[in-house]
């Protein structure tokens, strides 16, 4: 109309925001902690998208990673252990205009929060979930988590972990309505940022497992991946992750993987010999819970009174029983 379209509407936020605008308190993670890199990636995303800080919410549970909201100059909710996801769902359901991010550790997500994790995947609400996986309970000083590798000695498994580690990727890919699953490593800042950005633009629940070193308890757990780039399998695709020229030179073990192919995604996720990096699966067309179940209009006081009166009339001593019955069709 008039040679104009909605793209001609100029809405300028007068305040250009830099990374500083998204920085909360100084991070108190240990120097060398992988959480720092994830924090920077999240702040870069907010800066590059120029998200208004007051329209962002970072929700967390308990653990080192759960300190995340404190270090973001946005709204945040440092919640209960394992309960980050239901909190985030509540926020999103009532304020669909907000950008909701969730930060959980491996213990938070895969242990005490497992039930919420599974059902949040199923509800597919638009959330970006970053699972900081350092394979250990770091905040409480070195206890085995569900993703601790078999045989690793911790305070709770002095003889070495008894069980094979859980694979969060295969679990997530097996849940009904799964719509976005990715795996990245915090020491690959470019890839980390790219995947978080794509997760942010995903139309549904995005689950990102981020391999992260704990400088105190698992400093060398990923050393084979750091020193030998060939141990990382880079999943590249036009619709998925794309490596820069520099990264392509460094990481030569690649596979062209279409994120729409869930069967191949599951096969890749199950591999023990190599660690996949990139977007394993994405489907933009899974229905979202907050779109299906919209909070409806509240009935007016008058309407409520009418319904209540007709209900009471059924039991009223002097009421005309038949006419009350007729009215009470609610």
């Amino acid at each position: 109309m008039f040679g104009l379209n909605s793209q001609c509407v100029l809405r300028v936020d007068e305040d250009y925001k830099t990374l500083k605008d998204y920085e909360g308190r100084a991070a108190r993670w240990c120097p060398g902690c992988g959480d720092n890199g994830i924090l920077t990636a999240a702040q870069r995303l907010c800066r590059d998208e120029q998200l208004p800080p007051e329209k962002c919410v970072f929700v967390s549970g308990i653990g080192c990673a759960a300190r995340f909201p404190h270090y973001m100059n946005t709204y945040g909710f440092h919640g209960l252990h394992g309960r980050a996801l239901p909190t985030a769902q509540g926020v999103k359901l009532h304020r669909p205009d907000l950008h909701v991010f969730v930060n959980m550790g491996d213990g938070d997500c895969c242990s005490i929060g497992t039930a919420h994790w599974i059902h949040t995947v199923r509800t597919n609400m638009k959330l970006v979930t970053m699972m900081h996986d350092n394979n250990i309970y770091g905040l409480t000083k070195n206890q085995a988590s569900p993703t601790t590798p078999f045989g690793m000695k911790t305070n709770t498994t002095p003889q070495g972990a008894y069980l094979k580690a859980m694979n969060p990727l295969t679990v997530t890919l097996g849940i009904t309505n799964v719509s976005f699953v990715a795996q990245v490593a915090e020491w690959l800042p470019e890839v980390l940022y790219d995947v978080i950005r794509q997760a942010f633009h995903h139309n549904g629940f995005a689950f990102i497992r981020i391999l992260q070193r704990c400088p105190h308890f698992t400093p060398d757990i990923f050393s084979s991946l750091l020193s030998e780039p060939k141990n990382l399998l880079m999943l590249q695709h036009e619709d998925g992750m794309q490596l820069s020229e520099t990264m392509s030179r460094l990481y030569k073990t690649t596979e062209r993987h279409d994120p729409a192919d869930i069967h191949r995604a599951r096969e890749i996720a199950e591999r023990d010999d190599i660690v996949p990096i990139g977007i394993l699966f994405r489907d933009e067309n899974i229905p979202r819970y907050e779109q299906i179940v919209k909070p409806g209009h509240k009935s007016t006081w008058g309407q409520r009174e009418k319904v209540l009166n007709s209900a009471f009339d059924r039991f009223g001593i002097n009421a005309d029983f038949d006419s009350a019955n007729e009215k009470a069709q609610w």
Binding site: R25, E49, Q50, L51, D97, L98, H99, H201
Partner: peptide, 26 residues
């Protein structure tokens, strides 16, 4: 930490959230 953050709302921000919902890069 969060209580102390600046809550002043800049002008003209009403549509930003929808931009990202529709997948445009801001």
């Amino acid at each position: 930490d969060i209580d102390s953050m600046e809550l002043d709302e800049p002008t003209g921000i009403e549509s930003v959230s929808q931009t990202t919902e529709s997948g445009t890069t801001a």
